[in-house]
Design a protein around this nucleic acid. Structure first.
Lengths: 213, 213
DNA sequence: GAAATAGTGTCTGTAAGACACTATCGG
DNA sequence: CCGATAGTGTCTTACAGACACTATTTC
């Protein structure tokens, strides 16, 4: 970064792609959209001139998936010069995790396909283009790491929730069952009890919690 | 990423910058170089056409700092459109951590300045250009996280080393002292004893270890 | 012997894994 | 009462923090 004339250097096309996860049917799903040829892929876009990456991600979420008001995280650059046959395209992968309400409109409008994460991994039935399978597995690892160190970093749960609700989210994210008692004992000191109880659900009423901070 | 013609889109200049750390005088230092105006900054370069980011990083390490044979990690994209007054430059920050031998030649040739990390942080005496102070603090956090979960992920130590040697590296990276007995008990099961002992150092001879795996 | 470094014993507190029991709801 | 869910007691293991003591070398 000490050269004098920017025009001396060829420039790549710069894109963003976003892996957006959501929990449905107690399992983790990923948000896919269709390109003009009807193929399923991650929502993404080229970055406009002097646009921030974060702004381009929000634009693509809004235009392609009908999702708004989010704050995705930057993940990793994918720069294989042969990843896109149209030319030299460098893409910055992003991560978002949303609750059902955020994707409801996009699903209803037919713009979004919610696909179980197993379907886009190795052995799955859906082949994503470019190196998007690697983007998804990278993003998935990050989400799981996030949930390993905080109760609900992406705020998938409503304002007040029970330990059982939290456990279901964790099991969906992790893709496997967790031990109930150890899970409760680890999570309870990280949450703020409201003093309120659930009512009308099956079984014994449960304490409600909110997030700390 | 569903558009048809790449030429429809303006393209940013793409650069890489590398935060390279090394331990000297039992303290963590960062490798800086001088630009043509004599200002200290992180070594970096523009990415050439269809070049991999990793290749551009190696090229800048070699040309600007006289460092070779390394494998830096990608960290984070910095994309503030006003971060470089020359125009729209997006940079991908990278991280490397090297032992003294790797930087010896560059220092001897006067190409490298080794600066204590405190000097480039807030309150330090050196002002790095662009948003490089943020790059350094981001990289520093990553190095510390790396050393928190593995004895010597960047292989700063020679083939065989003592627990004391390892402790000195950790204290340099962390910037503070660690407790000797707890540190030894945590690290020993992660290392492979050689059966050899140190000889000729002050004090009682110590067991030598190598890395596992 | 003094200084320096290496190695270990022990106590305490915290937390997870595992198993099992009790508690309180709807029906 | 039954099924379902919530909540907790207890035992074991592991590990970190803290303090202190012993061991072996150089000078």
């Amino acid at each position: 970064m000490t050269s004098s004339d920017l025009t001396d250097f060829p420039r790549p096309s710069l894109a963003v792609d976003t892996a957006t996860f959501s929990v449905a049917d107690d399992a983790l799903h990923i948000v896919l959209v269709r390109d003009r040829h009807g193929r399923l892929l991650l929502p993404g876009t080229f970055v406009h001139e002097r646009e921030r990456l974060a702004a381009a991600v929000l634009r693509s979420q809004s235009e392609k998936a009908g999702i708004s008001g989010r704050e995705p995280q930057q993940l990793q650059v994918f720069d294989d010069p042969d990843r896109d046959q149209r030319g030299w395209v460098v893409t910055v992968a992003h991560l978002d995790v949303v609750d059902a309400a955020v994707v409801a409109e996009g699903i209803a409008a037919g713009r979004i396909s919610l696909v179980p994460v197993a379907e886009v991994g190795p052995g799955g039935s859906i082949d994503l283009p470019y190196d998007q399978p690697r983007v998804v597995s990278f993003a998935l690892a990050r989400v799981r790491a996030d949930y390993a160190e905080s109760p609900d970093p992406w705020r998938l749960l409503p304002e007040a929730f029970t330990l059982r609700d939290l456990q279901i989210v964790h099991e969906a994210v992790l893709g496997e069952e967790v031990q109930r008692d150890a899970f409760r004992r680890r999570m309870e000191p990280l949450l703020q009890p409201t003093g309120e109880m659930t009512d009308g659900r099956r079984g014994r009423p449960s304490r409600l919690f909110v997030h700390r901070g």
